[in-house]
């Protein structure tokens, strides 16, 4: 439970680890596309957590192949994303349209890779890894949807010209990170 809360709120992937910033800034202009991006990431994260744990603990550690960790994780993630992409294109073409270019980009979404690495670094058990993966995905979704909500409002307000776009988005993210800091107390 502590892992879950910490993954969603305290050690939020976007606001604490700075992972997944590209989609966080790129797909956070509308709430619905932000939500679908968040769900796609949650989905891929949960599967990645399971698969990378299996690889790490059943193959890499027993055979002392730790140095292959980076290469094997990235390959697993790349193929997983490919699968998810084909799956979504088949099941829901509108969703596929909405996610557009960002779906293949999940491959280079550092959040997914970071999840596999951080879970391995913390030596989580299988169950903990699953919870951690799902929680981190939810945390990412929460952050990106909140961000999209704020940015929809921002469109109507008077932002200084040079800060438009990424600049103001980063400053908003900073203020959000500050607010999320308040959740640290929940764990102690």
């Amino acid at each position: 439970m502590a892992i879950f809360i910490s993954a969603v709120l305290v050690q939020n992937f976007v606001l604490y680890y700075f992972l997944g910033i590209c989609p966080f800034l790129g797909v956070s202009k509308k709430i619905d596309s932000a939500l679908s991006m968040g769900l796609a990431v949650t989905f891929v994260m949960s599967i990645t957590a399971i698969v990378s744990w299996l690889i790490n603990n059943l193959i890499l550690i027993p055979y002392d192949l730790g140095y292959l960790q980076i290469v094997s994780f990235i390959l697993v993630i790349a193929s997983l994303v490919q699968l998810v992409e084909m799956f979504i294109r088949k099941i829901s073409p509108p969703l596929y349209q909405a996610l557009g270019i960002y779906l293949p980009l999940i491959t280079t979404n550092c959040a997914i890779m970071g999840l596999a690495l951080i879970a391995a670094l913390n030596e989580y058990s299988f169950l903990e890894t699953v919870i951690f993966g799902f929680g981190s995905g939810l945390g990412f979704t929460l952050a990106i949807v909140l961000m999209a909500g704020i940015r929809e409002q921002l469109d109507l307000s008077d932002v200084p010209e040079p800060l438009k776009g990424a600049g103001i988005a980063l400053i908003v993210a900073g203020i959000m990170a500050l607010a999320f800091n308040g959740f640290i107390g929940m764990l102690t």
Binding site: Y16, A177, L178
Partner: peptide, 19 residues
């Protein structure tokens, strides 16, 4: 030093670069 500082500083740097 907190994450918030990183976001805000980079946001302002981006703004300055664009300006």
């Amino acid at each position: 030093i907190l994450p918030a500082g990183a976001f805000i500083t980079l946001g302002i740097l981006l703004g300055i670069a664009l300006q």
